[in-house]
């Protein structure tokens, strides 16, 4: 099952750091997503993109996780050679994760 089936997501940027939220549609899926969607899983899935560490923050009352990916935006939004300099599309790559 893809994460896309149980959660939605939005990506934000600051300098060379991306943050990607993951929010479950149904609260009963939160624990399962928490268990399976670890920082390591995310780090592996984004290995071509995020060079630095991956941090995870939990907001159980919202059924949400917030991932912070360091060194993930090609040297920074303002100097990146990437087509998507802001990493706006990274949320869709997150939802492609098999959980």
């Amino acid at each position: 099952m893809k994460l896309h089936e149980v959660a939605h997501s939005r990506a934000g940027d600051k300098g060379n750091i991306a943050n990607i939220s993951v929010i479950v549609y149904r609260q009963e899926d939160y624990e399962m997503v928490c268990q399976r969607l670890t920082s390591e899983v995310v780090k592996r899935h984004f290995q071509d993109i995020a060079i630095g560490k991956v941090e995870r923050f939990e907001l159980p009352q919202l059924g949400a996780l917030n991932f912070v990916l360091y060194d993930a935006l090609g040297g920074g939004v303002t100097r990146s050679l990437a087509l998507d300099q802001h990493g706006k599309t990274l949320s869709s790559l997150m939802l492609d994760i098999e959980i």
């Binding site: 939005r10 600051k14 943050n19 939220s21 929010i23 923050f57 907001l59 919202l62 059924g63 917030n66």
Partner: peptide, 16 residues
């Protein structure tokens, strides 16, 4: 609730 949750975490690192 869903649109507000997405915006709450937009460009946030440590929510605390």
């Amino acid at each position: 609730e869903a649109t507000c949750k997405e915006q709450l975490l937009y460009e946030i690192h440590d929510p605390a």
